[in-house]
Amino acid sequence: MRAVYEVGAKVEDLLDPRAAAWNAAKSEVVKLVGTPIGLQPTALIRNSWMNKKIGQIAQVRVAAIHNGESLAFHLEWADATENRTNGDNSVFPDAAAILLPVGDAKKVPIMTMGAPDAAVNAWYWRANQNEVGREVVAEGIGTSRTVDQELVKVNGVWEKGIWRVVIARAFKVESKDPLAQLASGQMTGFGVAVWEGNSGERGGIKAFSGDWLPLEIAAQ
């Protein structure tokens, strides 16, 4: 996956998933799989989902654009149900996230959502807070925590069975927490996760892209 460089592209423009820049950007299809039942963190979750399908969304189309200062991802996937609320308790809002390693992808295990001193950094969007992106840090399964709700910019639009979501953030951010720091010309890894809220997907019950996928942030 290559995040293309677009001189002068504005994040606020890119946050419109239907912006012309996204039509022009080269995208690729990323296959998703359900998270393994054995890696679910509690017995209740494992016992409840043993015979249920995890990972309703089989693939997501991804494109990425940067302007030398910020990186924006465009995710597009088919979902027949638009879940923006928690319904009558029994459904969940749809959600998606980009996962990045903090530091060298080779040293950060993605399957366990990082490890102590080998953090992963998620840029998280959830349909019930469409304009509030979350900066999430995890150092192992069950450790994820939201560390900021302003740095990550998000916007999702659902139309005719398709979610189009943009998730963006500045390359460099100041934080006391371990967050991914990016730069033009960098080679790193990324992952994608999508939650289909109508099927009860939330937390670790999600579709994800498996091992780190290569991400090249084009040089300026």
Binding site: T42, A43, L44, N47, S48, D88, N89, S90
Partner: peptide, 12 residues
């Protein structure tokens, strides 16, 4: 001792 699946009670 084994956690049993349960139903999510709705607002209704």
């Amino acid at each position: 001792g084994i956690a049993q699946p349960g139903q999510l009670p709705t607002k209704t």
